[in-house]
Every structure is written in C-alpha cells, then in structure tokens.
Computed example of a mutant assay.
Amino acid sequence: MRITGRDPSGEGIRVQIETDEDIWHLYNVIEVGDLVTASTTRREEKAADKIRAERAEKKRMTLGVRIEKIEFSEDDLRLKLLGTIETGPQDIGQHHTLILENGDSLLITKRHWRETQLERLDRAVRDSKKPRIVFVSLDQDDATVAVLRQFGLKEVTTVRSGRSGKQYAEKPQADGYHAEVISKVVPLMEPNMPVVLLGPGFEKESLADDMKKAEPELFKKVHVYHTGQCGMVGINELIKTGMGAEVLRESSVGAEMEAVEQLMTEIARNGLGTYGTQQVRDAAMSGAVEKLLVLDTKIREQDLDDVVRAVESQKGSVIVVSSQHDGGRELASLGGMGAILRYRTE
C-alpha cells in the first residue's frame, strides 16, 4: 500500500492498493459512516427515459459514498462498500456499491481517525515490502500447498501421490508426484520468495532436490523442517512452536501466532498471562502489560486507543492479531484480548 496524500484538515487520507493483502488492511480501517471516494462505474442518468435507463451503458466516474455496509471476500480478495452517494456528477442520495481491488486508488474521509487505524495504514505500507512464504507440507501420500499472507494462511491445493507401498519402494521418483507438486507451486512464486518444505519422513528432502533441479533460479530459497504431522496441521505446528524462526521472523502471522502461543502457555500454567477486556484494561492502566494482544475484529469494532496508549507509554508492545489464522481463533476464544504481564496484578 502507498499513502499518496492527506487532506489539510486531517480527515481524509488517499491510498493506493498495491497488493492483495492491502484489501484486508482496508477492511480493518474503513468503517460504517466513513466517506469513501473512488473511481467506479454507473449507468448514465437518463432523466427523459427512466424506463430504458437500466439498459444505458455504464460510464466511469468518481463518486463519494457514505458507507453503510462493508463486505470482504477472502476468496477473490475484493472489498465491497455499500452506501449512499454524497458526491459526484449524478444520482446524489441514491445507493451505490464500490468494489475495491488491487490497483485501485481511494480517498477515505473520517470524522475522527483512531490511532490504531493510522497505525494499521502504516503497517500496510511496511508489510507490502515483505515477501510471502509458500509452504509445502507433505509425506509420501499427500502434499498440501499453502501461502502465508500478511493476514493468515491460505490453503491452495492438496496433491495426492496415488502410490502403493510396492510402487513407492521400487520407483519413488517415477510416479510424477513431485512434478505435480512443483507445477502447483511455480505459479505462486515471485522473485526471492522463500519456500518451506515440512513434514515427517524424508519425502521433503527428496522434493527439495527435485525443485532445485527443475527450477534452480526460482527455488533458490528452499528451507526444510521436520514436523510430526503434515497438512495444514503441520504448518501450524511449525509456526506455533517457533521452528523456522529465521524464515518466519519477517512474517506478521508468524510473530502473531508465536505471541498467542506464549500467552496460552502463561495462562495454562497460571503465570504472567491474563485475558478479558476489563482485566487487560486494568493491567494496562497499572503499567503491568509487557505485550498486548488484540484481535483485529475487536479493534475494528471498539475504540481501544486508551489501552494501546497506556501500554506504549510504559514501553510495552502491541500486537494486532489477525482473525484469519489459528492464533487469531485461539485469541477469539479468550474474548479477543489478552496480555503478557511484567508482574502479577493479583
């Protein structure tokens, strides 16, 4: 994401969507009541021929829409903003839907920008420079391909080897299993993108060799790790336990899941962990919070700037956790808010 301008009044910020992940960041910034101005298409107004207006050709125009409903689609990574037209060349007061995608530019105008929303935009700018990570979690029977994006893991596909025990013993490389896995991974790749291979057994080492032989330039950064399980379970195991930290340290999701795992461990052993909105707020105001974890959906729905300021003023850290991965779902089960403490408050 790029921030391309700010209104002198401080109410409006213009941004350029540069990656698919920016759509998710905007979903966590834009809220009902905002005025969003963007280029869109709409049928020309036909004052003299209302009956045939539906058949009129759609024209591109810039409209400002006061937002009444927000819809995010993870499958096609689009943001739909439904509301009433307030500014533009026609149809003032009528309803319109803005559909935002990668490459679009928009102006977001709010009556009041929360600090957490401004930080979210700054984070989107920083994160756009970080590479995605492709995972292949496999054993001799199945390979799950997934992509780690800025807001969560996305399972792409599963490849089945179709092997029998005898075939595997006699011709482990002659069945096309690895070639099919590689064919699924190649379209996901970008320059310098890391690939993480994981799972039990030795299939991952064999696949790593085949990848480097097939596409040596594309697969320059292949990392291999042993996990007890394969599939999405194995990928989550890798991230939660901190294995592969040298690869995942630049990933927001990796840091979020590791922090949630640390919180859950502290809570389980009745240590320096607490959760619940009021308990965390009290701890923050007393200066006891070392690390604050807040679910993105909670921070979108509530103004928690006072809690964030209290933690940061005492040199604590704040992690906004995505609801789109296992760590976020665990934090949601605790009410969407938790903290790792410097000292016990009770």
Rank of each mutant, 00 (worst) to 15 (best):
R78T: 14
K80S: 07
I92M: 09
D76S: 05
R78W: 05
T84K: 14
R78G: 09
I70A: 04
R66L: 15
T62S: 11
I85G: 01
G64I: 04
M61E: 14
G64N: 01
I70D: 07
R66W: 01
R78I: 13
L81E: 12
D75P: 01
E74A: 15
I67E: 06
E68N: 12
T62H: 04
D76T: 03
G83L: 03
H95F: 13
T87A: 10
E86V: 07
K80L: 09
Q94S: 13
R60C: 02
Q94G: 06
L81V: 03
E74N: 11
R66I: 01
R60L: 03
Q94R: 15
V65I: 14
S73Q: 06
I85Q: 01
G83F: 05
L79S: 06
I70Y: 02
E71G: 00
R60K: 11
T62R: 06
I67S: 08
R66M: 07
T87S: 14
R60Y: 04
R78D: 03
L82P: 00
P89F: 09
E68Y: 10
E74D: 10
I92Q: 05
S73G: 08
R60D: 10
P89L: 08
G88M: 01
T62G: 02
L77W: 09
H96T: 05
E71V: 15
I92C: 05
I67W: 02
H96S: 03
L81M: 08
Q90N: 09
G93Y: 06
E86F: 00
R66Y: 06
G64W: 00
L77K: 15
H95N: 09
M61S: 07
T84W: 06
K69M: 03
H95Q: 15
T84Q: 07
L63R: 01
H96R: 08
F72L: 15
I85N: 10
R66C: 07
D75Q: 11
E74W: 13
I67L: 00
V65S: 00
F72P: 00
R78A: 11
Q90T: 10
T84D: 09
D75V: 11
